[in-house]
Computed example of a mutant assay.
Amino acid sequence: MSTPINRRFTESKTPVVQQLDEHRYVAAGLSGMGIAIGMEVGRSAAEMIGGKYSDRPG
C-alpha cells in the first residue's frame, strides 16, 4: 500500500518531487515552507515533465 501524501511534514523534512506514473507527478511536502521554496520545487517539477523555465517574460 502506498504512503498517503496528506501529511504536513515528510519524514526527512525535504520536499517530494517525483513521477508517480506516465501521466502523474507530485510536488509536495514543503513542510510549511511553500512560499520560501515553492518556486524551486516548481522548477524541479517542470524540468521533470520536460518543461523549460525562464525567469524572463516572452
Rank of each mutant, 00 (worst) to 15 (best):
G51I: 09
G51S: 09
G29W: 04
L30M: 15
A36V: 06
Q19E: 08
D55E: 01
S44V: 13
S44N: 11
N6D: 05
R7Q: 12
S54A: 06
K13P: 07
R8K: 10
G34I: 03
M48H: 06
P15H: 13
A27F: 13
S2W: 03
F9G: 04
M39H: 00
I5C: 02
T10C: 08
V16T: 08
E22I: 06
G34V: 08
T10H: 07
A45Q: 04
P15C: 14
I5T: 14
Y25I: 14
G32M: 07
G34S: 00
A28P: 07
G50Q: 00
I49L: 03
T10Y: 04
V26S: 09
S54M: 07
E47A: 01
R56G: 06
S31G: 15
T3H: 09
Q18W: 14
T3K: 08
Q18S: 15
E40Q: 11
A46F: 02
A27K: 12
Y25E: 08
S44K: 14
M1G: 10
G51K: 09
I37K: 00
D55Y: 04
M33E: 11
V16S: 02
S2K: 09
R8G: 10
G58Q: 13
R8L: 15
E40L: 12
A27N: 14
I37M: 07
A45K: 06
Y25L: 14
R56T: 08
S54Y: 05
S2I: 10
T14R: 02
L30G: 07
D21C: 07
K13D: 12
M48W: 03
F9H: 09
K52R: 11
L30C: 15
P15I: 13
V17G: 06
V16D: 03
S44E: 15
L30W: 11
V41T: 01
G58V: 15
A45W: 03
Q19T: 12
T14L: 08
E47V: 01
Q19Y: 07
E11P: 02
M39G: 03
P57S: 00
E47Y: 05
R8M: 14
G29K: 00
F9C: 08
S44W: 11
G34D: 06
A36I: 11
L30Y: 05
I49Y: 05
P15K: 10
G51L: 12
G29Q: 00
V16G: 01
Q19A: 14
Y25A: 10
M39N: 06
S12I: 04
I35V: 09
S31Y: 12
P4D: 10
K52E: 15
V41D: 02
P57N: 02
E47Q: 03
S31K: 05
Y53N: 01
V17A: 10
A27C: 12
S54T: 12
S2D: 08
A28E: 13
G38D: 01
V16R: 01
V41G: 01
P57M: 08
E47D: 03
S2A: 09
M33A: 13
Q19S: 10
G32Y: 01
T10D: 13
S54N: 04
G34P: 02
D55H: 02
M1V: 11
Q18R: 13
V26N: 11
D55F: 05
D55R: 00
E40T: 12
M39T: 06
Q18I: 11
L30Q: 07
H23A: 01
G42E: 03
G38H: 09
N6Q: 06
R43C: 11
R8E: 14
